[in-house]
Amino acid sequence: MATKILIDTDPGVDDTMAILLALRSPELEVVGLTSIFGNTSVEVTAQNALRLVELEGHDSLPVAKGASRPLARPLRQPGTHVHGEDGMGGTHPPPPHGKLLPMPAAQFIVEMVRFHPGEITLVPLGPLTNIALAVLLEPGIVSLVKEVVLMGGSAYARGNATPAAEANICNDPHAASIVFRAGWPLTMVGLDVTTQTVMTPEYLDDLGKAGNPATELIHKITPHYQAYFDQFYGMKGSIHTHDPSAVACVIDPSIFGTESMPVYVETEGRCAGETVPDRRRQWLDEPPVKVCLGVDSTRLLALIKERLTS
């Protein structure tokens, strides 16, 4: 039976790849999308989420709009320099036809989890504000969620949004702290693995050649993203594989090597958003989470290509 997943997302170029990967994978049943600020504003990411479900013909899939800002800290600069003002690499696709659910994302998450007790895997691909709000509203959902597999954080690879912090955690460290401490089964798919898997220009060209709506969209929106990676990391057209890694980790966890350890999220000061692995368990107050430290990049890239081009 397919794994029910609820994707919380700020699309976003790599979110787009991840959502399309999920929608095109028979192992997964996407039960809804919830949007969040991050790569761009929540208004835009909500529209993009609608666009993506329509692109794949899942017009009836529910999409709920989420938080427009972090729980307690001020809103940071959005990631529009990476993803474009429209979160779609500046390509400004036509508006979606569908409507957003008339309830906030956190409430939708609570209702879905309660409706499918023990069955839902939450897959957060952006800042964790919606997930934290859901836990705050109804702490009981923690024991009803099957697991959380999130893209975010960095155990040993340092940060990207700041020298200390990965962008999703940095955007709302308080929310991340709530989610990491909740006590549910949680897998952190962070920069330790996502930066090890590189999509080259040749790989991206191959995707584009498939000529289906999914790969055509990816082909259109990726150049802006590639330009950022070149400017910031000198990657000459290659990109890291962030959000698709988290979805792939739900499809086939064997692609990743994990280690269980507590992860402390710093919430204050210059290092806010840092995810500190407590491998030797010197701090005893955090529950352990699974941290992805190794990845079979060849298999991961093959899986993504197979699903997107088929």
Binding site: A67, S68, R69, L71, P104, A106, T129, L133, L136, L137
Partner: peptide
Amino acid sequence: AAAFRLAP
């Protein structure tokens, strides 16, 4: 506070 974060 929760209401305002959910519904600005």
